[in-house]
């Protein structure tokens, strides 16, 4: 029972990191009907930049802010320069393009930062909290991880639901043509959407790095698990993406705890297949079907 608690806490913590990636993927999917397979690689890149900042003596928080800001810029530039030309083309174009970006970033990173695995600092302790001598089975960093992702989600929710900028972005995503005849600069909204998604990815990168360490392909699995969560959630729904990703986190944690850590990805694959066989469009995909 105690072990179960530990695995559950672990699963939720990792799941929140996957949730950040899943949410980033869903934001981009909703706006541009593109899956950004380079989402993880972009996050890896921004995490390296944070590491450099921190290694130069700057406090963790400066590195943190720099990572998120670079994420925003990388995402926006990628959309504007690379993705824009393929947005209106058949979907495979964008798939290959984002794979190209993924491959390129993972090759440039070792050139710039060295290819060896590096440890990554935490802003708060990574060991479990003790209260009156008994362990609470959760570390301050785990709490920070969960809190940071929740706050990021809350902020995004407020931006999208409560500001006119968010209204513009939603209109651009839901119906670009109508948005344009209403005077909304849809291109800018897409650029901004990619930027915000990459910012969220950068957050995931910062939160994942202390446990998965930092190396050029360190986010590959995180991306796959985030994507798995997003698909389980139905790709269209932010809430679904978060729920799906936390579910994946829990499943992986239980499988690796009770069965064997090397089988965790297989567990993720298994629940994905089970969900998709029951509901080929994911769990939260009711409503908006843009089928031919």
């Amino acid at each position: 029972m105690h072990l179960f608690l530990i695995y559950t806490v672990d699963g939720i913590t990792n799941g929140m990191v996957y949730a950040a990636v899943a949410l980033a993927l869903v934001m981009i999917w909703r706006a541009t009907r593109i899956i950004n397979y380079a989402q993880g690689a972009m996050a890896m890149f921004t995490t390296y930049i944070a590491l450099i900042v921190i290694r130069h003596g700057a406090p963790y928080w400066l590195g943190f802010v720099v990572a998120l800001a670079t994420g925003l810029v990388i995402g926006a530039v990628t959309e504007r320069v690379l993705v824009r030309p393929v947005e209106s083309r058949p979907p495979l174009n964008a798939v290959i393009l984002s794979l190209g970006v993924l491959i390129l970033l993972e090759a440039i990173a070792p050139m710039l930062f060295g290819g060896q695995t590096q440890s990554f600092p935490v802003p708060v302790s990574n060991t479990d909290l003790l209260v009156g001598g008994t362990s609470l089975d959760i570390s301050p960093f785990a709490l920070f991880t969960i809190g940071a992702v929740l706050i990021a989600m809350l902020l995004l929710f407020l931006v999208f639901q409560r500001t006119t900028l968010g209204l513009r972005m939603r209109a651009a995503a839901f119906n670009p043509e109508i948005a344009r005849i209403l005077g909304i600069r849809v291109g800018r909204m897409l650029t901004l959407g990619w930027g915000l998604a990459a910012l969220l990815g950068a957050l995931a990168g910062m939160l994942a790095a202390p446990s998965v360490y930092l190396y050029p392909s360190n986010m590959d699995e995180v991306l796959v698990f985030g994507f798995t969560g997003a698909i389980i959630g139905g790709l269209e729904s932010p809430v679904g993406a978060v729920a799906g990703a936390v579910g994946v986190g829990l499943a992986l944690s239980y499988v690796s705890g009770y069965v064997g850590s090397d089988l965790a990805p297989l567990g993720g694959f298994a629940i994905l297949i089970v969900v998709l066989m029951l509901r080929p469009q994911g769990l939260f995909s009711f409503g908006r079907q843009r089928q031919v």
Binding site: L167, R170, I178, L182, I184
Partner: peptide
Amino acid sequence: HGIVSELTVDENLRLGGLW
């Protein structure tokens, strides 16, 4: 008509002059 069906009536109206 081209209304954005995912948004509320009020949001649709606000879209009209957002710029």
